[in-house]
């Protein structure tokens, strides 16, 4: 299967515009949080939930809102697994490598995703369509091995199921393109 790059390459100005809009939004939402150190992690979580990652500018803004140094924010953010510092792919693939999944061959599932997309865990494809992450345990051990595709938990994964997931993505994309063309 090939991954299309056409039409979704972003130019620098697109990115700038995207970032400007993000900064505006963060400015507005920060005012809802009290200036209390205990709010640091909830603030970072809410920013990531909305924008899917923590940009440098965002961390600076949080620091000045809470009146702490940007270093402090950075130190905290880099400590926790949850926080990302680069935009992830539009489709996020998380492969569980909890104990039960490991025993059931979770690493083989991860390898299949990696091979298919040509990226390693923690990376995003060049077209920003997919990113792969390994997660410690999503708590679905009885269904091992497990992968989480865009918040949908998929139990009893097999290498052949990996193929199926991409096939589905492709079908959806083709449908979207058709819909767009017919509009």
């Amino acid at each position: 299967m090939a991954f299309h790059n056409d039409g979704i390459d972003m130019t620098a100005s697109d990115l700038d515009q995207e970032e400007r809009a993000m900064i505006q939004e963060i400015k507005r939402s920060l005012s809802k949080f009290k200036k209390h150190r205990g709010n640091l992690i909830p603030i970072l979580q809410s920013i990531q939930e909305k924008h899917s990652y923590l940009a440098s500018a965002a961390m600076e803004m949080v620091a000045s809102h809470l009146d702490i140094s940007p270093s402090e924010v950075y130190g905290v953010a880099t400590f926790y697994n949850q926080f990302r510092f680069h935009p992830p792919g539009r489709n996020q693939i998380k492969v569980c490598l909890g104990t039960a999944c490991h025993v059931a061959g979770g690493d083989i599932i991860l390898e299949n995703f990696e091979r298919k997309l040509g990226i390693k865990d923690g990376e995003t494809t060049a077209d920003r369509e997919y990113s792969i992450e390994r997660v410690a345990c999503v708590g679905c051990c009885a269904l091992a091995p497990v992968a989480v595709i865009n918040d949908n938990v998929q139990g009893y994964m097999q290498p052949s199921k990996v193929e199926g997931i991409f096939l589905q993505f492709q079908i959806e994309r083709e449908r979207e393109e058709r819909d767009k063309a017919s509009e």
Binding site: G38, L40, I41, V76, F79, F83
Partner: peptide
């Protein structure tokens, strides 16, 4: 409700408290 940000060590009570205080969960 406080949402833990994904650090196994925060199951340890002093680290858990550090994280609620907005610090590194050490």
């Amino acid at each position: 409700v406080f949402q833990g940000s994904g650090a196994f060590v925060c199951g340890e009570e002093t680290a858990l408290i550090q994280s609620i205080e907005g610090k590194r969960g050490m």
